[in-house]
Design a protein around this nucleic acid. Structure first.
Lengths: 134, 134
DNA sequence: CTGGGTGCAAAGTATTTGCATGAAC
DNA sequence: GTTCATGCAAATACTTTGCACCCAG
């Protein structure tokens, strides 16, 4: 479990039931797009507005405690910020999985080629998950 | 230079001046979003429609001779398909640069962790380009 | 000729904004 | 009590579609 209220407070966001639910859902589902969040929260808050989802997700992304993950050929999904990691995306079923990889090798490769100063690396692997390979 | 007509024919797309211009622009500018393409083509075709841009870009992406590149905190850009490469994106000026990196190390790291079958890897480095570091 | 592309207008989808009310602190 | 979130409706932005006309092959 996760203590969503404390988390929200730490980021100077007022603790509302809707926000708690957003954090809880993302905690249990890992990655969700706006629509999935909306449909899920409708179960708990029958009159919740899509605008509320957008406003809150945007606010949390601003505070850098949610990340937006851009996926090829799909809508962006959101996840709770955590240590740096990459993503596996199944192009058949859409499943998204976190994976730890060491990107330091890549970064040193860049340094050798360019004067670019890297602040962040996004890596998305697309392919087939175990069950979709059958 | 590039022979856009031949390229279009190879991909079974009729050769129209608008399409040639799209290919030429992407060839000379490297990466452009829909709006940049539209504004640029307006110079040559004052009555070109945004719909034409969308239809053609989508058609070319279908034929896999354009790629869509999703960029953090920015609109997608399109580029002519070429050998696999990664992208450097300057978060200050928006400049996008191609870079060759060897992703095979990453891929073997995945194999060790997961039964996932990788078909594609997208890598985007965000940071500061040389001139924006000053 | 014939098929498909173009531009326009309209429809559709996605996202943001303004505002009155109500909840959090 | 004050600040800020919510839900609603409207506005804006983005993308696709239908269709009449025209061009490429």
């Amino acid at each position: 479990m996760i203590n969503s209220s404390i988390l929200l407070k730490e980021y100077n966001l007022k603790v509302t039931p809707q926000r708690v639910a957003i954090v809880d859902e993302l905690y249990s589902n890992g990655h969700m797009n706006i629509d999935e969040l909306y449909k899920k929260l409708l179960e708990k808050f029958p009159s919740i507005s899509l605008a509320t989802i957008y406003k809150n997700v945007n606010a949390m992304v601003e505070k850098v405690f949610l990340n937006e993950v851009k996926i090829p050929d799909a809508k962006s999904v959101y996840e709770l910020a955590k240590e740096e990691h990459s993503h596996l995306v199944c192009s058949s079923c859409g499943m998204i999985e976190d994976i730890m990889i060491d990107t330091s090798i890549l970064q040193s490769s860049i340094k050798a080629q360019s004067a670019f100063k890297i602040q962040n690396v996004d890596v998305v692997f697309s392919g087939l998950c175990k069950s979709c390979q059958k």
